[in-house]
């Protein structure tokens, strides 16, 4: 999704989170756990992705094409 909708995005691994950066904007709180559904307390949830898309000003239509769960 990021490659297509936020070309040139950058990820940095910090002690607590991943920092995802695009166009001078930063989302510094992406959990370092596995992707997945909430059941079983997967660490990266839809809410994190949704907020990251908003924070980085990524086009939501583009993101939804790659991640239908955002609809």
């Amino acid at each position: 999704m990021l490659d297509e909708c936020a070309p040139g995005w950058v990820k940095e691994t910090k002690a607590h989170h991943y920092w995802v950066m695009w166009k001078d904007r930063t989302f510094p709180s992406l959990p370092k756990g596995q992707h997945g559904k909430k059941k079983g307390r997967a660490m990266i949830e839809v809410g994190h992705i949704k907020q990251m898309i908003r924070q980085l000003t990524i086009d939501m239509d583009c993101a939804q094409k790659h991640l239908p769960v955002l609809r």
Partner: peptide
Amino acid sequence: DEGWWMYGVNPGGLAAS
């Protein structure tokens, strides 16, 4: 449905459930 989410405005780069 499954609980609560907190979305940051300032600072905006945060979400937690």
